[in-house]
Design a protein around this nucleic acid. Sequence first.
DNA 1: AGACTGCACTAACTTTTAGAAAGTGCAACC
DNA 2: GGTTGCACTTTCTAAAAGTTAGTGCAGTCT
Lengths: 137, 137
Amino acid sequence: MSEVSECAVERETEHDQLLFDVFAQRCPSRATLEHLTGRWGVLAMAALHDGTFRFNELRRRVHGVSEKMLAQTLQALERDGFVHREAQHTIPPKVEYSLTDRGKRTAALLVELIHDVEAQMPDVIAANQRYDAAKNG
Amino acid sequence: MSEVSECAVERETEHDQLLFDVFAQRCPSRATLEHLTGRWGVLAMAALHDGTFRFNELRRRVHGVSEKMLAQTLQALERDGFVHREAQHTIPPKVEYSLTDRGKRTAALLVELIHDVEAQMPDVIAANQRYDAAKNG
DNA sequence: AGACTGCACTAACTTTTAGAAAGTGCAACC
DNA sequence: GGTTGCACTTTCTAAAAGTTAGTGCAGTCT
């Protein structure tokens, strides 16, 4: 009954490319996409698009993120190779986060999305009001 | 102690534009961004980028989404004016979902992101293995 | 000198959210 | 006449997010 979709990671096409599909439930691309588009993933990537930052600098940039979630988010992004982490084992510790080349490419897309959303906000707020009025009216 | 950042929605710049900032904790743009980038938001938008679909058609396209979450996601996207909902009050009911013009623009960016991620997956998987090896080695 | 803050986290606990399962009411299909 | 499909909502449980506290040492403030 409960069918679980998989992507054909293992199979190769005639063009020697692997097939990944975010619409397939168990495709690893879905997890990666979530790391990038999760609540804090987008913001961390966009913040790092502006340069290299220390852990607590990022925390101050991304208002509202907890230490736990920022650490968790950065670890996932580092594991996926979007973020580079460089730690100096001094006291107090100094850890610098930056984007990898691959991360920079993807971050550019996310920044574009953010700007698009910010620019649309007046329309979004108007749409919200229309929707709520239609419901309660 | 706990400072909460707000965006200057109310203030206007000299160019007569409103200021929205997703990095500010209480800026409404952050909620909107989350509707789009949330786990199911991206996939719903990308699915609708291919055309008009009924509720259960979407559910079959976006593998793994529950009815509850799909309904919730579509309602948020409709309220924000990204998605258009057209219901025929027949029995059985027929409800068709499609993207608004604004939604189409934003969906294009999300689809671009998805393709970028899918294309990077071989590198991501390699990065995962390197990360795990470095940790357990 | 002694208290306080900052550094980059992790661990334990609580609250919020997501997901799973069942219910709705009717009609077409077998 | 039993099953399935339609588009949801409601209830309950499992998972995720958020909150708080702790680490160990060095600078800053008083």
